[in-house]
Write a protein that binds this DNA or RNA. Structure first.
Lengths: 139, 139
DNA sequence: GTATATTGTTGCCAATACAGTAACAAATAG
DNA sequence: CTATTTGTTACTGTATTGGCAACAATATAC
């Protein structure tokens, strides 16, 4: 699952939970609503629960509930919870180059550049809350 | 090959060509210098030649030469030449959701967001020239 | 004109990663 | 105790990727 798909799937699930705050929704119910596989969803939601974005309850009447108010959950929070890898990262290319030092310097240039871009993306994602998305996607 | 690896490999090759403007370098020579496989390099360089960033000459004493001045080649030019796909794009998730309309609205939200981010990245890449990178990675 | 060198492209094969599902132990509520 | 649900692992078929090798097309040198 690509990072972008994980992110949008997570947001769909969290939006649904936000509108059903009175009861826990289990993975099968969420999957039916937003589409996709319950097992796959559980894998995502368990990551979100480790960051206390949702709470997971096992057993009868169990399922998932939102643990924070939607206007305190940012896209950045969600992204970090589900994805360990940076959005922009260099797969450093280490070949047996004659000028290995030049290779390293160029790699470092790109590592720095991608870090800068990463910061900009994170800044943007910090400014967007789940609440924002819910309002923008209201019918 | 990931987009980031393609980009850094291309820059390494172009930097090398920039310092050998008097003669054409063939793919084997470039591969020896920067590391990696000659055949793979040719695939990248042929894409760059289609955008007239390098010129390719076949036959004896053939190879590749830079076709533009380093300070007129931007990272954005290179990226577009070698990668058709946007850096940030949503793999839209189309499941059989009960509320398909909500799904679509959420997907559209992310498509818009990623487009914005894409524009920012492109802006950044347009500001960086091959010349800049050569100077910054000088030993 | 001929021989030679080089690109540009295709095909192949192994290795790796991924998607989707199923299965099941652990936990929990009633 | 029983039923249910999470959390995780395992499995299986399918794409994707990487690295080469091969070769036709092409251009150059002589």
């Amino acid at each position: 699952m690509s990072a972008s798909t994980k992110l949008s799937t997570s947001v769909k699930a969290l939006s649904l939970l936000a509108t059903h705050s009175e009861q826990a929704l289990n993975s099968a119910a969420i999957a039916a609503q937003i589409g996709g596989n319950a097992s796959k969803l559980r894998r995502l939601l368990s990551l979100l629960s480790k960051q206390n974005i949702v709470a997971a309850r096992k057993g009868k009447e169990g399922g998932f509930v939102l643990q924070k108010k939607p206007d305190t959950i940012t896209l950045q929070d969600i992204y970090c919870a589900i994805e360990d890898q940076k959005a922009f990262h260099l797969d450093v290319h280490t070949g047996s180059a004659e000028d290995e030092q030049q290779n390293i310097r160029t790699n470092n240039f790109f590592i720095d550049l991608f870090s800068e871009i990463q910061v900009e993306i994170e800044t943007k994602m910090k400014e967007i809350t789940l609440q924002d998305i819910i309002e923008k996607t209201k019918s």
